[in-house]
Amino acid sequence: MQRVNMIMAESPGLITICLLGYLLSAECTVFLDHENANKILNRPKRYNSGKLEEFVQGNLERECMEEKCSFEEAREVFENTERTTEFWKQYVDGDQCESNPCLNGGSCKDDINSYECWCPFGFEGKNCELDVTCNIKNGRCEQFCKNSADNKVVCSCTEGYRLAENQKSCEPAVPFPCGRVSVSQTSKLTRAETVFPDVDYVNSTEAETILDNITQSTQSFNDFTRVVGGEDAKPGQFPWQVVLNGKVDAFCGGSIVNEKWIVTAAHCVETGVKITVVAGEHNIEETEHTEQKRNVIRIIPHHNYNAAINKYNHDIALLELDEPLVLNSYVTPICIADKEYTNIFLKFGSGYVSGWGRVFHKGRSALVLQYLRVPLVDRATCLRSTKFTIYNNMFCAGFHEGGRDSCQGDSGGPHVTEVEGTSFLTGIISWGEECAMKGKYGIYTKVSRYVNWIKEKTKLT
């Protein structure tokens, strides 16, 4: 034993070699072989497995989906700052455009905790909710729209109204504003409101030439003092309507412009014939205590009207009353817009006519005020429907199939267009061939041609 100890002390290297040989010859039971080890760690190889990531292109799944990435790591994937920024906006807080917040056709661009709407022409605001041009839906104005110097929408209202708090709607500024039905039992019968379409306001006024200088022999019209197929109006439903009495009662109609003036057809009036105007009328054979009678003290036909040349060209006249009318729910003026808007309103496509005229061709006159909704007829169809001249200051309205029309005794009465609950004068009943005849239409004086003249002559002093 002493000898062994001496050998170990003198030859430590020998001992180490012996131990190493023993270990190498022993069977290893701690580690699995290569094949079995792979069965336990069965993990798919990654895209760049075996390579240094710093030297390969980034992978979106590896960089940002398996674990949260930084902007720089995302930049490695896209290799483009702009594309990385677009991805980053949604990656950080989701897609803010998912709810489609942009209105009126706006395009949404996502941002971090926010979004941006790219608005089409005519709109602005956070969600493109603000109209900035009158060309689109009248700028959301209830009545009139004008573009300011910086191309912003400025709404306005006709006389007797003021802008509401929203700067879009119009509200009454006087007790009985024009064009409004205020009798409670008839307010439910107000005709369907007309909503502004998209309009090209630059070209809204037709490029028409008034044929002022045409000389033409007097034409022989049949029954051209021209509501057939209409309905009984309720008291106060058309408070701007008046009836004219002269040699015979209810020979023509008219509309209240203001307390002192009536507008009617020029062919209705004769110099030297006494005319009485009755406002607030409903049943011409009954006294309903809503009527107001006034005498006409002055007749002003349009300066281009000449019955000797043509009885229905420039067929418009103004009547001055001896005493002002007292405005109330049964006696209310009709609204008159400017030339541009009167023309736009007419193009809405349908209007209402009213009167006490004959209820059928050569038949009896109506006792109760009649009204009828009539569609506008395109000019080409209008011209083809008659052998008589249709001037540019006239328009056609009615039904091709016949059966409904204005008729004798309705002449001078109103053709009105309702705009968001307020009625505007767009025409004056003038003439036609018979009444409600198939293929024939009622012919009306186009008020847009005469609004400046009306307003100039009827100013209240």
Rank of each mutant, 00 (worst) to 15 (best):
P414F: 10
F55P: 15
F78T: 03
C119L: 00
L425C: 00
H400T: 14
N127E: 04
P177C: 03
A436Y: 08
D150W: 05
D198V: 11
D93Y: 05
D93H: 06
D249Y: 04
N452P: 12
K146A: 11
E171N: 08
G398P: 03
F345M: 07
E281K: 12
T426R: 00
K440E: 14
V257W: 02
R384K: 13
E420T: 09
G179L: 01
C407Q: 04
L23N: 03
M6Q: 10
C141H: 00
G21S: 13
W88M: 15
V278C: 04
N48K: 10
V228W: 07
R83S: 15
F360Y: 14
S148N: 12
P235L: 09
K109V: 10
T381C: 05
T332E: 03
L14W: 11
C382G: 02
V174S: 09
L425D: 01
A9H: 13
V377N: 02
G351F: 00
K137N: 14
S217T: 11
R62D: 03
E433R: 08
G236S: 05
Y47E: 06
G355I: 05
N258F: 02
Q57L: 05
I344V: 10
S187D: 13
K137Q: 12
Q167W: 08
S406Q: 14
R449N: 14
A307P: 11
P301S: 09
Y115V: 02
G179K: 01
A233D: 05
L244Q: 00
L211M: 13
L103V: 09
E231K: 11
T381M: 12
S411C: 06
G50Y: 11
D110F: 04
Y441S: 03
G351R: 02
A250F: 08
Y115I: 01
I214S: 11
E53A: 07
L383N: 09
T461E: 12
A366H: 12
C170D: 00
C335H: 01
I428V: 11
G402N: 11
L41G: 15
G351E: 01
E129W: 00
N306V: 07
V181Q: 11
S114H: 07
N203W: 08
I309G: 08
T461H: 14
N295E: 11
K152M: 09
Y201G: 14
E124N: 05
H415C: 02
N59G: 11
N36Q: 10
F196V: 11
C268H: 00
L103P: 01
C170F: 01
F224Q: 06
S365L: 08
E82N: 13
K438R: 12
E73R: 09
E82R: 08
L367F: 12
S365H: 14
I443N: 01
F345R: 00
K247C: 05
F144N: 00
Q237K: 04
T158C: 05
N5D: 07
N100P: 02
P375N: 14
N393T: 14
A397M: 02
D110C: 03
V419N: 06
S423L: 11
I428G: 00
G351C: 03
N38W: 08
E171Y: 09
P333C: 02
P12A: 14
A308F: 09
A337H: 01
N127R: 07
A265V: 03
D249N: 05
I428A: 00
C155V: 01
